[in-house]
Amino acid sequence: MQPDAKNDDLIRSARFRAEREEGWRRLEQLVAQAEKSGMAALGYDDAVALASLYRQAMNSLSVARSISMDKALLDYLEALCARAYLVVYAPQESVTGVLQRLFTHGIPQAVRRSTTALIIGFLAMVLGGFVGFMLYQQDTSWFFTFVPSGLSDGRVPGASEAYLRSTLFEDGGRDGERLGTFATFLFSHNTRIAIFIFALGIFATLPSFVLTFYNGLILGAFYAMFHEAGLGYELFGWLSIHGVTELSAICLAAAGGAQLGLAVILPGNMTRREALRERGRDAVKLVILAGLMLIAAAIIEGFLRQLVQTTQMRLLIGWGIGAAWLAWLLLAGRDTVGQDT
């Protein structure tokens, strides 16, 4: 290249700058545009120009660091490259693509990889249920210790069988619209609890475990009370229709928490920070799954439980849906493509 006469008397680094400044200005302009209204707002030519100008600017920065002592120039290029980098390396996956990969591979694979955590999650619930049941058998007053009075709603030890039965088989006079409200409330409330249980797991698993265990305790005590009134089977149906999905979701959230906790307690050869990042991948997918199942559970609990009134049907629907979840999680994404996001 023949340097033009105007630049001839400049020193080397000033010439370097004069030759490239135009490209930087253009890049700056494109970056500002992309920052303001997103990459999608750029035209085809602009997008192509952005990519190549970005590489040129990076190149300039690298060269300028070795030849120039102009602080202003170095600061400018550093900031320009950082800005351009943030625009060029923006997340670009399409939402549908991400979701598809998540459902076909990400979630099922994550679940299959998290055996230990899942055992911890489900164990917490089952143990809680068992302890709750046994304690109630010994002394019914334990019920009042476990179950908050807002939750029991008259369903306490010593309540008449007829009343208990009526709580299982009546639609509460709710019409469709009210059921919708109820379902939304359940979903929003339960999902928050699930996220909470998950996130607490980072404190060495224990809080997640305790919360899930406590849920189990309530469940166990409730079951024992209905069992005492001779309504064990009916309660089982009443719980099964949504509980198979809902309680599994809580256990999954606890398992996600356990993944984080395990990374903190047993990081292995990695640092704790690395271990958290590593395990976090699966843990987050477990929570997404839990959220999904809670939406399903809320719909079932909000609508179906009130509409389906026989125990057999309740059992069939509840465990049928449970089997469907299990089939998806066990069978999907067995091929190796689309590993992870």
Binding site: A79, R83, L86, L276, R277, G280
Partner: peptide, 25 residues
């Protein structure tokens, strides 16, 4: 935050680039 550690993310200032004139030129 703890969340940043799990995700491997950082929160940074948005850089602003101002090109001052070249004194040598």
């Amino acid at each position: 935050r703890l969340g940043d550690m799990i995700a491997g993310t950082l929160v940074v200032d948005q850089p602003t680039a101002v090109l001052l004139p070249d004194l040598a030129a």
